[in-house]
Each structure stands twice: as structure tokens, then as C-alpha cells.
Design a binder for these strands. Structure first.
Lengths: 357, 357
DNA sequence: AACGGTCGTCGAATCGATTCGATCCGAGGC
DNA sequence: GCCTCGGATCGAATCGATTCGACGACCGTT
């Protein structure tokens, strides 16, 4: 009936002071083994399960919890294999430090200000959201919570983990160019999460929230100049398929010979659309993706893509977070990516082919 | 340079007592609007972002954090669409209460005792793990943390959210029986997470950790009696495919005419294996799943399956957790499921057919 | 003018540990 | 026999808020 026993109660029963009991639980070498034993068995008798994490956190000034901000609703965010690997990497490192991982994703995709205010965070990782004007960002900074951004907002005082989106897409584009492709179109991930889809206008592009999306467009343009970009409302297979149908179901003379999807998931959708329309890949159409995600159901097709180290990204982000907690200064990292040629890219159809280089 | 301002500092600057300042931040109606204003602007001037969650939590005795235990490593757990929906449901409800969701999954799949001890939890939800002898369970109970189990451990004092696994599989089995199937085999999810795969012996079955797996076997046996059960090491498409290859690549006279996969994900794998072996579904083989998961890449195939309300399960679990936090008594819920006949089940091949009933 | 009732503000106790410097004790050195 | 040293334990301050009962002032009654 009475409330749980406290450290003081245990100490009293063991005949030691609270400070000693605390030391005993912390496993300090300054307490004699025999004493520790006494304390521990007193605790067992009282059903004391160890120091209250809340009280300990308050005193220590650390909560042992790191928050991960997910830009979308959980359900959608984790359909993305890259987001999943990222989070897995984060979780792996945090666990090793006995630190908890708090998921922050609201109903509308964005955690409420209230929620952020109530939750004790040692650090925050912006995992799949890239808003420089995110209100949560200011809120956290005001509170003095260290922040790590993964391909996220590039702001003073924030640690940054980036991958070479632009270089990677450039390699991809060059690969296609070498194969003789000249009519290339891009299927883009959302530029911001407002449900918009369709051809991307310059105005729209100026509104882009996500740096990776911008960079992945820029990489293609480095090689092909201005290309049509079609924005999907969400990074999902079916949206890729929908975009694919629109771009491919046109007069063959206007049909692109290659599609650069900004993610493997979108690319899978485009492949699906191509199959529906009876287009052979890569004979009639090349499709390339980005991420190097594991999509077992794609077998035996192997997507031409750019492999990024998603899990390493997560691990680095978590380590950066732990570093900041320890008082380290924010750093920036740029991770390399690697082109992986699969079975979905080939020479441009002969009627369209230009002599390579 | 100096540390963050405290409530006391803000109060001093506003010329009120700490208690009043606290009331002001809490939005209590007992504080005069003018005073509240003074406090708020004093806070703004000092760069005070609101009461420290840790201190507030300690005093209140609530941390505003609910933990979700994931039985596996994040990466694998969330490949399962059902787990994802479950978590999404949980997240939705918790967000509405301004409560944070802490993911507990260790490197080896199991959070370390240390991690659990350090993290302040108001309640814990056992989301995708069903161990009655989980050490974490005892640890949490000792600490007095309320627990909700989702198809999880059935223990005194724990709230339980269950679905009708047995009834659902029974419906599924009856459906197959009505179609004339007599040689039926089960592809099971892991009975416990130790990497084992292969035919399930009675001894193995006794070791089963997961109630849903046991119930889903029992449901089939209610109709067909003892049937061969093949255990997969992990609930994933490729494991389903591997199992499928083994069970289907045998002499046609011994080949099952129907396979009951314990999840849609496994069923998808079996379908893949069947395709590789040139078996037509449902003409040569019927395949049924469980869950009613959304697997967009399966289109246009529609799996015959049992639909369970995964998201509702999550929402109920979260509500149960909030209830327990408020001091409510643990309850048990059994959610209904519904058979959904798709395109993957049909009459048993004529050579095998027995006259239905 | 005394009194009852509100409304707003304040004091003080409390939540449950951690931690640093001080203290105490016995053993060993000279 | 006295002094020192080191290991074990203890006291007291502290972390930063919340909350309840008390208190003072002001208003309207009778």
C-alpha cells in the first residue's frame, strides 16, 4: 500500500548513510565489499529496485534519453528502408551507452510543442526532417539541448551528418550519359511534406525543405543541365509507380529513355509502372535509384543505384549526439557514396542513341 | 557562460515568488493575467524556455515517457508491417497525450538491464515480444512500472491486448478444408528468437515463447489435426521463400496443396518460392497468410488472409497504458479478426481433391 | 463599522537521489 | 608511544521545480 521504498529506507535498514548506499548502487570502489553486500540485501528485502531514474537524472543533469525527430508519421517514415537503417544505427550506439531512444513524431507528423517541452532530452537527432525553420529546432536550442542533424537543417551550433548526395547523383547521371541517354527525367522525393505532386516549377523548388532532395536534383543537372523533375507526395513504392505511369505513358518520341528516381523505393515503383506498360528494362528504359536499400522482393532485378552507408550514418549521428552531451563541440561529417551498377541501366534505345562521348 | 536560468531567477526578475511563476507557466487560472504576462516576459528576457522537465517530472512523479519493448533489433522488427502499424497506433495516442514514446531494443534485440534501470518510464508496452520469463518484466514490476502486453506475456497485474489468433486461423483452415484441401502445412514465425529453423518437434513447441505463434498453430489443428509445421528463423519475406522452397520442391504426391503461412510477409515469400518452382497459385497451390498487412508490391495478387486491426491494437495498448498511469486497474481485451478471401486460395488440385464435406 | 467571501500571491515542504569535502578509525613507521 | 596515512563512511548542500494550505487585501453587505 505504502509507496515504494527509497534509497534512504534501504540505507537505514542496512545501517549505513544514504550517501554510502548511493555509492554502493553506483558500484563505487570506495565502498567496502561487505558494506555493499549489506546494502544490496537490504534492498532485496525491501523490494527496492534501484535508484529512481528521475531523481538521479535531476541530480546528474542528464536524463539518459536522446530524441529522434521523425518528419513524418511513424507508419510512413519507416516504410522507407533508409530511415529504418538510420534509426537502427542510432539505436545500436545509444543502447551501447545505456541511453534510451525517444521517438518524436506527432499525429500530423510533427511532435507538438507541448510534447517537446515535457520530455527530458539530453540531445536531439533530426533524423528524417530537414527544415531549417522547424519550430522544434528553436524550442530545443532555447532549452540548450544539443542537436544533431542528419542531412538536416544546416544551422549554427548544430552537428551535421551529411552524405554526398550531389556527387552520388552526378555519378549516376554520368553513367547514364555514357550509355547514350539524353532524354532523362527525375522522379523526386517530396520537396516538402504538403501532399503536393507534379512537375516541379522553379517557384516550388525555392520552397524545398529538404537539402538532400535539392542536392540530388543538382547532381543530375551537373551532367544533363535542366531536366524535368516530377515530385511525388511521399517516398513510397506506389507513388513511384504513379509517377512512372504519368511519365512513361506518353508518345515514345517524347518518352524519357532513363529515369532517375531519387530513392530506391521510388525506383521500384517506376519499374512496376514500366512493367505494366510493357516496357523492357533496361532495353527500352533505364531506371536508377538512390540509397542501396535492401528490397528483397525486387530479386532477381538488381537496381542501378548509389549506395549510401545508412546505418553508419545513424551510428555517426548517435556518436555525435553522445559527444555533444559530453560537452564536445558540434562537428560536420560528409560521408561518401558509391555507384553500384545493376541490371536496370543499359544503353539508350538505338533510335535515341547518341554516340557515347 | 553561466548555466541556464531557473524558474527562481525568472520569478525574481518578475518580482513574484517561485510558486506564482510556476503557476503562471502551468497556465493556472488562479494567477492574474497581468502577473502571468510579467512572468512570461521576464522569462523571454532571460531566455528561459520553460520549466525543466526533469525537475517537474521528479516532483510530479511522472516522466511523460512510455516505453515500447521491441523484441528484436529495430531493423528487423520494423520490416514487419504489423509491428509498424502497431507502433504507429501507439505513437498516435501517446502524442495526443503529450507523452513521449521510448523505443527499447538493444543491440542483441533485448535492452540491457542497465538501460531499463536508467530510463524513467511511466509505463511500458511489450509490443513485439512475448516472453513470460523476460527478465525485463520482473525488473519493471519490481520498480512498479505499469505494464501492457500486446499478445505478450500473460501475467498477473499486466494489462493484455490480444487478438483472436486461434479463431482466425481456424477460419482460415476451415476455408481451405471447404476447398477440398487435405495436405496442409504451416510455415510458422519464430517460436523463439534463437535463429532456429526447420520442422517443429513437440519438444521445440514446448519451448515456444510467443503466444500468438502457438495459437496460430492450434487454430489450424482445430480443423486438420496434427499438421507439419516448419519454423522460420525470422518473420521476413526471404525466410518465407526459403521455407517455401523446402516444402514445395518435393515429389508432387507429397507436396502440400495448401500452405498456411503465419503472417502475410511469410506468405509473400512462399508465393515467391512457388513462382520460382513454376507452381500456379491457386491452381496448383493455395497460400494463405495472416495479418491483412499492406504489401503494395504484391499487387495485383490479393492474399487470402485474416485481417487483424493492428493499428487499433496499438491505440488500445497506448490507452491502456495511459489508464494504468492514471491508476486504473489492468484489463484484458480480445480483438476480433476477419477472414478475407483473396486470389491465392482455390480448390485443391483435382487429383488431390476430396469431395468437400 | 464589522464581517464574510473572493481572488491572487506567497512560504515551505517535498520529490529522491548524487557528490564533495570532512571525518573517523586502525594500521604501520620511527 | 606518537604521528601519519589511507581507506571507508558520513553530512549537508544541491538539482529545479510543484503544490497545498495560509494569508492579506479588497469588495460588497447588512
Amino acid at each position: 500500500m505504502s509507496s515504494r521504498p527509497t534509497l534512504a529506507a534501504v540505507a537505514a535498514r542496512a545501517g549505513v548513510s544514504a550517501s554510502t548506499a548511493s555509492l554502493a548502487f553506483a558500484g563505487s570502489p570506495r565502498v567496502a565489499p561487505a558494506t555493499r553486500e549489506r546494502v544490496l540485501s537490504a534492498a532485496a528485502e525491501l523490494g527496492y529496485a534501484g535508484p529512481d531514474p528521475l531523481a538521479a537524472s535531476l541530480r546528474r543533469g542528464r536524463s539518459g534519453v536522446v530524441g529522434a525527430f521523425i518528419g513524418e508519421r511513424l507508419l510512413y517514415a519507416f516504410r522507407d528502408p533508409v530511415a529504418l537503417q538510420l534509426l537502427d544505427g542510432i539505436s545500436e550506439v545509444l543502447s551501447a551507452h545505456d541511453v534510451g531512444l525517444l521517438l518524436l513524431a506527432g499525429d500530423a507528423g510533427r511532435p507538438s510543442a507541448n510534447q517537446i517541452a515535457r520530455v527530458p532530452l539530453d540531445a536531439a537527432i533530426f533524423a528524417t526532417c530537414g527544415l531549417e525553420d522547424d519550430p522544434a529546432l528553436d524550442q530545443l536550442r532555447a532549452r540548450g539541448v544539443p542537436i544533431v542533424a542528419v542531412e538536416g537543417p544546416d544551422v549554427e551550433g548544430v552537428a551535421l551528418i551529411d552524405i554526398d548526395d550531389r556527387g552520388g547523383t552526378r555519378d549516376l547521371a554520368r553513367h547514364l550519359h555514357d550509355l547514350g541517354h539524353r532524354r532523362v527525367e527525375v522522379v523526386a522525393m517530396p520537396l516538402r511534406l504538403d501532399g503536393t505532386s507534379g512537375p516541379v516549377t522553379p517557384e516550388r523548388r525555392a520552397l524545398a525543405h529538404y537539402r538532400d532532395v535539392r542536392h540530388r536534383i543538382a547532381g543530375v543537372e551537373d551532367v544533363f543541365g535542366l531536366v524535368p523533375v516530377y515530385e511525388t507526395p511521399s517516398n513510397a513504392v506506389d507513388e513511384g509507380a504513379a509517377a512512372g505511369r504519368l511519365l512513361l505513358d506518353v508518345d515514345p518520341s517524347r518518352r524519357p529513355t532513363a529515369i532517375v528516381a531519387q530513392s530506391d523505393v521510388l525506383a521500384a515503383g517506376v519499374l512496376q509502372a514500366a512493367a505494366e506498360l510493357g516496357l523492357r528494362v533496361p532495353e527500352d528504359l533505364s531506371v536508377v535509384g538512390f540509397d542501396g536499400a535492401e528490397l528483397p522482393w525486387l530479386t532477381p532485378t538488381r537496381l542501378t543505384t548509389v549506395v549510401q552507408p545508412s546505418d553508419e550514418k545513424g551510428r555517426l549521428a548517435a556518436r555525435a549526439a553522445m559527444d555533444l552531451v559530453e560537452g564536445g563541440a558540434p562537428t560536420r561529417v560528409l560521408l561518401p557514396v558509391e555507384l553500384r551498377v545493376g541490371t536496370t541501366s543499359g544503353r539508350a534505345p538505338s533510335s535515341d542513341r547518341s554516340a557515347p562521348r
